[in-house]
Computed example of a mutant assay.
Amino acid sequence: MNANLTVLVSGRAAITDLGRFGSAHLGIPSNGASDQYGARVANILVGNVDSAPLIQITAADFSFRTDVPILLAVTGAPARLFVDGVEVPSWSPVCVPASARIDLRMSGFGMHAYLAVKGVMSTEFFRGSCAPDSLLALGCSLQPGGSIEIESDYRPFVHPYLPQPLFAFSPHIPTFAHAWNLDILAGPEAGQFGDSINELTESNFTVDARSDHVGTRLDGPTFNRAIRTEILSRGVPLGAIEVPPSGALIALQRGRPITAGYPVIAVVARASRDALGQLRPGDSVQFHFVTRASALEKNDAVHSRLDTLRQRVSLAFDSVGMTFGTTKESVQL
């Protein structure tokens, strides 16, 4: 059964997925969902594969109407979710009737919410991904009056032991605030900053309004290298904290250039990169150095939570005759 979602209020919403991988050698950044954990959980909660296209809603409200029953979930930054004016929970699958109006209202904490709908969202792919890329002029930004087509096998159901059409899976929900603590590891040029590197963990930084999907600019102490030799351009990872000539820090996001020549004083640990993607202008940030072993342990814990959630959702969906993890090839450019 195909569903058509008619956009009523779009704000800053776009269709995306986990990103464009395997193209770095061509100079193409990954882009994709800024908060990978939130995006994965949204898709898992409705029975999609983690990498299925979904809607990233950025710092603004979003509304749409569906013509047929759908199963949806909203995760990421805190938001209030309403179906025909009745508030329903986020971070949980929600059964929505035909002709319903869905309203999502952002709270002001965090930057990105994620809305997944069970099924295959129709969109165009480039090199295996539908992630927007401003440099390549790729992506599907949503506009009022526009339509989103979804091929779905979802059917409304009645279960003798569920008093309401909701599942309670209780996924881990990150804490959202205006003050953040991010784990970091020493970067390749950390030793070139002498004792001033201590300022990284002893100071508060504020997210600059000029931040975007390429990099988060941080206001605070500035850093100067003890040596003046040039650095050859080389590959830079997601989360690299660069020090440009001004001395102010830039933490690279998913839309970063693949190569750069600024010194990298530190790198945000993987388990903190979703929080990095949720920083909004005016938020404060504190960094904490961690060991490689600790960083890997925290990252493993995140994936363990996702594995457990998949198992729970798969079992529950099987009990009511719904599929889990189905997908379909999308249009390739």
Score class of each variant (00 low, 15 high):
P97L: 02
S99K: 05
S99Q: 09
R101N: 00
I102K: 02
L104V: 10
R105T: 00
R105H: 04
M106G: 03
M106H: 14
F109Y: 15
F109L: 13
H112R: 13
A116R: 03
K118L: 01
K118I: 01
S122V: 09
T123F: 03
R127M: 11
R127E: 00
R127G: 01
G128Q: 06
S129T: 08
S129D: 08
A131P: 15
P132N: 06
P132C: 07
P132E: 05
S134F: 15
L135G: 04
A137F: 15
L138I: 12
L138Q: 09
G139A: 09
S141Y: 14
L142P: 12
L142E: 02
L142F: 14
Q143K: 12
Q143P: 12
P144R: 07
S147M: 14
S147E: 11
I148D: 01
I150T: 10
I150Y: 09
E151F: 13
S152G: 07
S152L: 09
V158T: 14
H159W: 14
H159P: 08
H159A: 03
H159Q: 05
Y161A: 00
L162M: 09
L162I: 02
L162Y: 06
P163S: 04
P163K: 08
Q164Y: 10
P165M: 04
F167A: 00
F169K: 06
S170I: 01
S170T: 10
H172R: 11
I173P: 12
P174E: 01
H178C: 13
D183I: 07
I184H: 07
I184S: 01
A186C: 01
P188L: 01
P188D: 00
A190P: 02
Q192F: 12
Q192Y: 14
G194F: 12
S196M: 03
E199A: 08
T201D: 07
T201Y: 09
E202H: 15
E202K: 15
F205E: 00
F205Y: 14
V207H: 08
D208K: 15
D208L: 10
R210L: 11
H213D: 06
H213F: 08
V214I: 15
V214L: 13
L218C: 08
L218Q: 10
D219Y: 11
D219W: 12
G220K: 10
T222V: 14
T222E: 14
F223E: 05
R225D: 01
R225F: 10
